[in-house]
Amino acid sequence: MTKLVGDDVDGIELDGYEPVSEVMGLADTWWSGPDSLVALYTGEAMSLDFPRGRIALIYSGLDQWGLRGGVETGDG
């Protein structure tokens, strides 16, 4: 896992990543790539005009189970 804070969040390249729409919760947005997930926490920092408070967590080196959490299509 890699943690980026403040202006370092701007350097994240999300080309080839897709938004993960079914994830709701603590992060503002999640992005899924070939072997990684990116969680962006930016909303509160931006609403408080505190860009240094932005955080990105990058979970890399994930296999298919790690990317999908063991959930199969059609699971409810």
Score class of each variant (00 low, 15 high):
Trp31Glu: 08
Lys3Asn: 01
Met46Ala: 09
Leu62Met: 07
Asp49Phe: 15
Gly69Asp: 06
Gly33Met: 01
Tyr59Asp: 04
Ala27His: 08
Leu37Phe: 02
Ile58Cys: 00
Asp28Ala: 10
Asp28Asn: 12
Leu40Pro: 04
Gly76Tyr: 08
Leu67Tyr: 02
Gly53Asp: 02
Asp63Met: 04
Gly11Phe: 08
Val23Met: 13
Gly25Arg: 05
Ile55Met: 09
Arg54Ala: 14
Phe50His: 14
Thr2Gln: 14
Leu62Gly: 03
Gly25Ala: 10
Asp63Thr: 09
Gly33Lys: 02
Tyr17Cys: 09
Asp15Glu: 15
Glu22Lys: 08
Leu67Asp: 01
Met1Cys: 02
Tyr17Phe: 15
Leu40Asp: 03
Leu62Arg: 07
Phe50Asp: 11
Val9Pro: 05
Leu26His: 11
Gly66Glu: 01
Tyr41Asn: 05
Gly61Met: 04
Glu72Pro: 00
Trp30Arg: 04
Asp7Ala: 15
Tyr59Glu: 05
Leu26Ala: 10
Trp65Ser: 07
Thr42Gly: 01
Gly61His: 05
Ser36Gly: 00
Leu67Arg: 03
Val38Glu: 00
Leu14Gln: 09
Ser60Lys: 09
Ala39Phe: 01
Gly25Gln: 13
Leu4Ser: 06
Arg52Lys: 06
Val20Phe: 01
Tyr41Glu: 03
Ile12Thr: 10
Ala27Tyr: 05
Gly70Met: 12
Gly76Thr: 09
Leu57Glu: 13
Glu18Asn: 10
Val71Ala: 11
Asp15Cys: 01
Lys3Met: 12
Glu13Asn: 15
Ala45Val: 11
Ala45Arg: 08
Pro19His: 06
Val71Thr: 06
Thr2Arg: 13
Asp35Pro: 09
Asp8Leu: 13
Asp49Cys: 04
Thr2Phe: 03
Leu40Thr: 06
Ser21Thr: 11
Leu26Thr: 10
Thr2Asp: 07
Met1Gln: 06
Ala45Trp: 13
Gly53Phe: 03
Val9His: 11
Ser32Val: 14
Arg52Ala: 11
Ser32Tyr: 00
Met24Trp: 09
Arg68His: 08
Gly6Ala: 07
Val20Trp: 01
